[in-house]
């Protein structure tokens, strides 16, 4: 009796563990989180555009809003999702380092002022010397700060970093009379409204380096990739058209993101969206992307984001559309692929 109960219980546990890792068949789950450049995904799902494209390729796509950005990437990396919206840096340091071969399927936009360094009692990056800076460590904010410091011949040792949750950063900045923060929108907007706050650096000074993308498992079927690309560019076409539909779409996205229409429009201004697939293809095939990824991987390695025991930034390989690879050719885990966006630009989806 005892033995049976025990064995039964063990069996249930093991079966449960195995099934939860198994693939869900023909239905694919895609994760996203709230960010200006990703609101079109919510719109695509709400208006049925995504479903339409999924049907066209004979699959099912379930778009899931995960309310915590890092959690959404962690869920993707551990196998719960087939695709997830994330930045180029996080795509490298979380799924790629975690051994999940990932493809940057859609390059949606780059931050062009959506991330910034704000301080009181100072007006240039040099004034940051010796100051306490609040930011989410290891995030794109951290990357932006290091780039800003490097451009001003300073290093991380010149400042003191304080890891601070992005949910609290704006309120803490407001209450601190000698505050300095690095953050992104919408909290960036809130910090700039504080009396005495000065924007000393933002991502428009390093254009094209903080990229927001839809990342998909490299082994996911072409149907999923095509359906996602198709739905995305249909929404992009609506947003950039001059029709009434464009205004309605913006209103819907603003409401969904919890911002007013004016705020959302202001955020869109500092987000360099690629409204046509042709622009995105050109960007992805450009040589600047390689330079950017070199910066990003150097930063990630120096911060220890490749994990304990990794002694070389060549540990992981990054592949570009022209087939060139930086890093380990035998361990390519992040691939920039322009081919699906290319098909979209040719109107052949």
């Amino acid at each position: 009796m005892k033995k049976t109960v025990f064995m039964l219980w063990l069996l249930v546990t093991v079966v449960f563990l195995f099934t939860s890792f198994a693939d869900a068949g023909q239905k694919y789950k895609v994760a996203w989180s709230h960010y200006t450049g990703w609101e079109p995904w919510g719109y695509a799902s709400d208006t049925g555009i995504l479903e339409k494209w999924a049907k066209k390729y004979g699959i099912g796509i379930e778009l899931v809003l995960v309310n915590d950005y890092i959690e959404s990437i962690n869920l993707y990396t551990s196998g719960s999702f087939s695709a997830c919206a994330m930045t180029n840096m996080d795509a490298l340091t979380i799924p790629a380092v975690g051994g999940v071969d990932s493809t940057v399927l859609i390059v949606g936009d780059f931050s062009n002022g959506n991330d910034g360094i704000v301080m009181k009692n100072g007006s240039t990056v040099k004034d940051l010397k010796g100051r306490d800076i609040k930011l989410v460590e290891f995030s794109v904010s951290h990357y932006l700060l290091i780039r800003a410091l490097t451009m001003n011949n300073m290093t991380e040792k010149d400042v003191k970093l304080m890891n601070t949750s992005d949910a609290d950063i704006a309120a803490l900045f407001a209450s601190d009379s000698n505050g300095a923060v690095v953050t992104w929108n919408p909290p960036l907007m809130q910090t700039l409204n504080v009396k005495g706050a000065q924007l000393v650096f933002d991502s428009s000074k390093i254009p094209g380096e903080i990229i927001d993308a839809m990342v998909v498992r490299t082994d996911a079927p072409a149907e999923l990739k095509k359906a996602l690309v198709g739905a995305w560019y249909e929404v992009m076409a609506i947003m950039s058209s001059k029709e009434k539909k464009a205004k309605e779409a913006i209103q819907m996205m603003a409401k969904n993101s919890g911002a007013t229409e004016a705020e959302f429009k202001a955020q869109l201004k500092t987000t360099a969206m690629f409204y046509t697939p042709a622009e995105a293809v050109q960007f992805t095939k450009g040589t600047d992307l390689k330079k950017t990824m070199e910066y990003v991987r150097t930063f990630s390695f120096e911060q220890g984001l490749f994990g304990e025991g990794v002694t070389d930034k060549d540990f992981i390989g990054i592949e570009f559309p022209d087939g060139s690879i930086i890093g380990n050719k035998n361990n390519v885990k992040l691939r920039f692929n322009a081919s699906y966006m290319q098909i979209a630009s040719e109107g052949k989806l």
Binding site: N74, D168, E308
Partner: peptide, 24 residues
């Protein structure tokens, strides 16, 4: 420590969560 810190056990856990370092 999870909300704002420069060191501490909770700080480290929430920091390395950023790149899913379960080994830490």
């Amino acid at each position: 420590e999870a909300i704002a810190a420069t060191d501490g056990l909770g700080y480290r856990i929430f920091l390395v969560r950023r790149y899913m370092a379960m080994d830490i």
